[in-house]
């Protein structure tokens, strides 16, 4: 983006809502009817980590080992965060931890996109926050600017690192996406390879993508069915209905429901106030003690 372009289109930059501004040259001519989104029910989540394991298997993620993990070099696109309730007497361990599956929130106004010096991460027409490994130069700016800390950097050339994929585990690498090399940033793609196939099949059959055409790896693996994934623009889809039922709107940084006191709806998005407009809605866990 040149400075002259910036100055000429200043009004547009300032006035378009981040969710409306697709940043996509084709958007006006060919608006997409797909916006991938997710809803995660924390009440159902048992913190079993099956989603994380499924993600490792689906997306060719290297298992870095204990030592590199302690250096903060883990590559878990999907991670389970644990939170303990605290009281005056210390941590309330009796109730157990609260679990929060955390992965890329595919923000509509993604903070990572604007800081990439080479434009390796940008917005796709179906509302994903893409990461182009070939273009990435490994500046790690995006990771620094990500409020959710869900971007992972390849510190080593894992395919050639011993015991990352010991034979015959290399045989199970997924050919539908690349095995990233050293010096490249990576993150959750909402299983792009699966959404691609779903869109492709729907297009061949001459119909729009229906709910249930595509499941992400984490959703498929979740034994509690806590994860819902689908097209937010399709009012029939489960995910859109959940968002609607919880009165969470994509375009708002402060939901209307939160203004009314005593609201008992559970839906919320993490760090909404930073205005990244994330595409993942969480459904709050209700403790027995809180009821």
């Amino acid at each position: 983006m040149s400075v002259s372009n910036l100055l000429e289109n200043w009004s547009k930059f300032r006035h378009t809502h981040p969710v409306e501004d697709k940043g996509h040259p084709d958007w006006e001519a060919y608006p997409s009817d797909i916006k991938w989104a997710m809803a995660i029910d924390l009440d159902a989540c048992t913190g079993c980590n099956a989603c994380s394991v499924a993600c490792y298997a689906e997306n060719n993620l290297p298992v870095v080992g204990k030592e590199k993990y302690s250096h903060g070099q883990a590559m878990h696109w999907m991670r389970i965060e644990r939170y303990w309730d605290e009281s005056e007497s210390g941590f309330e361990v009796d109730q157990g931890a609260r679990f929060l599956p955390m992965m890329c929130q595919q923000c509509e106004a993604a903070p990572c996109e604007t800081v990439c010096p080479v434009g390796a991460t940008n917005h796709t027409e179906d509302g994903l926050n893409s990461q182009i490994y070939n273009r990435c130069i490994g500046s790690r700016y995006c990771s620094a600017n990500c409020p959710y800390k869900v971007r992972y950097f390849n510190w080593y050339d894992y395919p050639t690192t011993k015991d990352v994929w010991p034979s015959p585990m290399n045989e199970q690498l997924n050919p539908d996406l690349s095995v990233r090399s050293k010096g490249v940033m990576e993150k959750c793609t909402f299983c792009k390879q699966r959404t691609y196939v779903a869109r492709n099949n729907a297009k061949t059959e001459g119909r729009p993508v229906q709910d249930g055409d595509v499941q992400t790896a984490c959703q498929e693996a979740c034994p509690a069915g806590a994860i819902t994934f689908g097209n937010l623009y399709d009012p029939e889809s489960k995910v859109a209905q959940k968002w609607q039922h919880q009165q969470v709107e994509l375009t708002k940084e402060k939901q209307d429901k939160d203004k009314t006191e005593g609201n008992r709806l559970r839906g919320y998005r993490i760090l909404e106030e930073l205005r990244p407009y994330p595409s993942v809605m969480y459904l709050e866990r209700v403790r027995e003690s809180a009821v």
């Binding site: 996509h24 040259p25 084709d26 060919y30 940008n122 796709t124 027409e125 994903l128 893409s130 182009i132 490994y133 070939n134 273009r135 539908d176 996406l177 690349s178 793609t189 792009k192 390879q193 691609y196």
Partner: peptide, 13 residues
């Protein structure tokens, strides 16, 4: 008329 996708993510995996 229409043209092919020009999203990086469509072809790069």
């Amino acid at each position: 008329t229409g043209h092919g996708p020009n999203d990086c993510f469509t072809c790069h995996k």
